[in-house]
């Protein structure tokens, strides 16, 4: 495993930790899109179908369990915790995420490497992950005061796939059997590009020492 991939995974982990910290310590999920969280849970379920059958490394297995467990605990907090669920801003979270699921499933059925259940579900998870942040980005734009933890959560999440792209370039250059990954690369590129606007305002607010606010 190269440093880019590892740093990417750590960013991903950090984003989840930051979000859980906000929810657990502040007992608040204000500004967080439940729809994005539902999409991520679905992404992890579909991608990690092989969790008990396809062993790659202890690291991989543990990370898979951590991502699945954290995704479900976030959903539990936002939907069932008596204090946290009151802070969920349902009216601002209006993205029609079922359309994303449907579109990604159709695309996965049409464009994939291999037509097997496992492979199509994996491809679906790759497509869905690329766009899963959209409900969250829409919600951020509507929120006037984005708190630091929420801003950092989205920032770490965006950095994660950015680092994965460097990992792909590195692996492409150093590994002989590392090709035919274009499907992942295109999706990963789109996923990272979606954050471009957010990154711009995040860095700007950080440099000017101002509170993060996205233009409407």
């Amino acid at each position: 495993m190269n440093i880019f991939r590892f740093a990417g995974d750590m960013m991903h982990l950090l984003s989840v930790v930051v979000l859980l910290l906000k929810i657990h310590k502040m007992k608040s999920c204000a500004g967080i899109s439940l729809k994005t969280q539902e999409l991520y849970a679905l992404v992890f379920i579909c991608r990690y179908l092989d969790i008990f059958t396809g062993f790659i490394s202890l690291y991989n297995t543990i990370m898979k369990i951590v991502f699945l467990a954290s995704a479900f605990s976030i959903l539990w907090y936002m939907r069932s915790h008596k204090v946290v669920r009151q802070t969920y801003d349902k009216d601002q979270d209006t993205f029609r995420h079922y359309f994303l699921i449907l579109a990604c499933m159709v695309l996965a059925l049409l464009v994939h490497h291999k037509f097997t259940f496992r492979e199509v579900m994996w491809t679906f998870s790759i497509y869905l992950e690329a766009v899963a942040i959209l409900p969250q980005l829409v919600m951020l734009q509507r929120t006037r005061n984005i708190d630091n933890l929420t801003g950092n959560y989205v920032f770490f999440l965006g950095t994660y796939r950015g680092l994965y792209m460097l990992n792909w370039v590195y692996r492409y250059l150093t590994e002989v059997h590392y090709h035919h990954r274009w499907l992942t690369w295109i999706s990963g590129f789109i996923q990272t590009a979606l954050y471009a606007d957010f990154f711009y305002y995040y860095v700007k607010s950080w440099r000017n020492n101002e509170k993060l606010q996205l233009p409407a």
Partner: peptide, 10 residues
């Protein structure tokens, strides 16, 4: 293996 595709990333 077909395409050498092994999902070793997270």
């Amino acid at each position: 293996r077909n395409l050498g595709e092994k999902h070793d990333e997270l």
